[in-house]
């Protein structure tokens, strides 16, 4: 740190100048708020009306009703099954797709179509994919599994391809110099460098598949979401509260589990 100069009263600048960029951003923000409230017809009347209903709803939700625990457990089991199968299948598929999409491993005519495919998997929200699968393979767990496989590919394959593109090529060269085949190059020079990051992405995806497996049921793709949605439609708000508590517990358990896995593979 430089020594402080003795300050002179003559040319002392305000250290915190007015920032015209941020001022204009604030003004834009205000204008946008006015515009959007008008465009969407939001009014305080509706909001304050709603707050009254919120009180009633909370009143009905407590205490949570666990008396139909068999139904709850069935949905929970199906959600878990969907999450596990889709995570593992998705991880295995994205292992290959990620490799094919890495531009330093594959020629352009392989990597570009693969990257496009991955981008398409990522663009649509899982719910939209779930709807398409429900229409094509019918209601039930299968649609949920296929949906979450697509969602997993979009996430893991992309990040995995990026991780492979960042590796050091020295080890690849060294293994190649020994005359190793392509598969050996992948197994002994690429995989050791990216494996821990891959585990990181996979556990994250397991987590998010757990969350999403409780949601795809809303459009009929099996799991706890279906139970939740029908409870909503029957206005069984105390059962809804029980399901929500179960979901939160499930996700906390999932976070714990992925922390353990990450610890093992560190």
């Amino acid at each position: 740190m430089a020594r402080l100069n003795p300050s002179t009263a003559i040319n002392r600048e305000n250290p915190f100048k007015r920032n015209w960029l941020s001022t204009s951003l604030w003004i834009l923000l205000g204008l946008y708020l006015v515009y959007s409230f008008n465009a969407m017809g939001l009014s305080w009347q509706r909001i304050s009306d709603g707050l009254g209903f919120a009180g009633k709803l909370l009143d009905k939700m407590f205490p949570p009703n666990f008396s139909r625990w068999e139904l709850l457990l069935n949905g929970l089991g199906e959600s878990l099954e969907i999450a596990i199968i889709s995570s593992i299948a998705g991880i295995i598929i994205s292992l290959f797709l990620g490799l094919f999409a890495a531009r330093n491993m594959m020629p352009g005519w392989v990597s570009t179509p693969t990257r496009t495919f991955i981008a398409i998997c990522r663009t649509f929200h899982p719910v939209i994919i779930a709807i398409l699968f429900v229409k094509s393979v019918g209601f039930g767990a299968l649609a949920g599994i296929l949906t979450l496989i697509v969602a997993s590919i979009g996430f893991i394959a992309k990040l995995f391809a990026e991780a492979i593109e960042e590796i050091s090529l020295k080890q690849v060269e060294a293994i190649r110099a020994t005359g190793a085949s392509f598969v050996s190059v992948i197994l002994f020079s690429v995989m050791p460098q990216v494996f821990s990051r891959f585990i990181g992405f996979s556990t994250y995806q397991l987590d998010s598949n757990l969350r999403n497996s409780t949601m795809v049921g809303i459009v009929g793709a099996g799991g706890l979401g279906g139970t939740l949605f029908s409870a909503f439609q029957r206005f069984d708000y105390d059962f809804v509260a029980a399901i929500l508590i179960t979901i939160i517990a499930l996700i906390m358990f999932g976070e714990l589990l992925s922390n353990i896995i990450r610890g093992v593979f560190r």
């Binding site: 939001l42 409780t214 979401g225």
Partner: peptide, 24 residues
């Protein structure tokens, strides 16, 4: 954690029950 655990569709279901269908 509770905000992240509950999916946006489930939040939407809750708020549709409170405010009725619509943008709010």
């Amino acid at each position: 954690v509770s905000s992240r655990s509950i999916n946006s569709l489930v939040w939407a279901l809750l708020f549709v029950a409170i405010f009725g269908p619509g943008v709010i």
